[in-house]
Amino acid sequence: MRRSKIIVGIAALTTAAVAVGTAAAAVVLERAAVGVHNNPLRLLGLVQASYAPGCVPAVNPIACHVNGRAWRLQSSGAAWSARSDGVNGYRFEVRPGDHWAKDVGHAGFKERAELSDLARMPYGKDIWLAFTLEVEPGPPSTSAWVNLGQLHATADRGEPATSPPWVQRLLPNDRFQVEVRQTHEDPIREAPPPIVIFEDPKLERGRPYRFVYQFRVSQEQDGMVRLWRDGVLVADYRGPLGYPDKRGPYFKFGVYRAPAPGGERMAARYSHVTLGPEPPPDG
């Protein structure tokens, strides 16, 4: 009986959020741990990703279908935060004060609109990630860092959250770089320093860039990150990648940043997103 009441309560909460579609409803859902992998609401994303390509709903989605995988939105719930956009595509926008409910109370009050993969990346196996990324025109970023896609570690119990093992970062004045991290420290006490594998001194706003990645997360020398940008191999990292966690990391993409002193908004479009064990058609 108690289990039935819980299921009914979850269904009612979800239905209310879809129907209302307000920031307040999104906050309620996030406080119920939508986007946290061990929450029963993740099942909605799994079902949706199996049967309905795109996002439900199309604006501020509870769940999205990306290449047959289920993803959950982490955002403030603002009307501009996220929406379906084009072929396997998504538009994200962050404005000052756009805090995900689970970020509130943490140092810095980060701002984000990201889709988070429900599946964990396997250790020692090749995974391909591909997408076309366009950062919309606007003033140069004044944020200390903006994550435009990351591989988020699954910290073991008692460990602090750490910087991602792989991340695309937009730094002040739109300097773009790709970083990887690795450590054998267990338990992890602090994030290891980044290894920069690719850098562009000035990301061109309004230009679509095609990124194709080949990953192998491993604590051994067979770890790997290879990057092709616009069809050209620009990074080929070989060596340990990631942290000695019991469970593998998971992908996130969108816009996630430290607060911007300049107060600028930032929007990014991702399209033709694929993720899986096989290279994309243009791989």
Results as ranks from 00 to 15, higher is better:
S143C: 06
L129H: 09
I6D: 05
H106A: 13
W128E: 13
G108F: 06
Q74A: 07
E204C: 04
Y209H: 13
Y51F: 15
V196P: 00
Q214I: 00
A82V: 07
A260T: 03
W80L: 13
E179Y: 14
S84L: 11
G21H: 03
G254P: 02
I10R: 14
V94W: 01
R229M: 15
I7Q: 08
A17H: 02
A155P: 01
L46H: 07
R265G: 14
T132Y: 06
M266P: 02
L29S: 08
V196Q: 02
L171M: 15
H184W: 10
V225F: 00
G223K: 01
E264H: 15
F176K: 06
M121V: 12
Y51P: 00
L148M: 14
R112V: 01
A78W: 01
R69G: 07
E114K: 03
Q48I: 01
V27C: 04
V20W: 14
P187C: 10
H65L: 00
G21A: 05
Q182S: 14
V36R: 07
G77A: 01
C64R: 03
R257V: 06
R31F: 11
F176C: 09
A235W: 05
P193K: 11
A17G: 04
L233Q: 14
V180A: 07
A82W: 01
G158N: 12
G254I: 03
G89Q: 03
S218Y: 08
I6H: 06
A24Y: 09
P61W: 07
R69L: 13
M266K: 08
N67T: 10
D236A: 09
R229F: 10
L171F: 09
A24T: 12
P140C: 05
E30R: 05
V56I: 11
E30A: 13
K252C: 05
W80V: 13
R247S: 12
P244L: 09
P137K: 03
Q214T: 02
Y123P: 00
E111K: 06
P53W: 12
V217W: 01
D98R: 01
R229K: 15
D200V: 04
E190M: 05
R169Q: 15
V47I: 13
L46F: 03
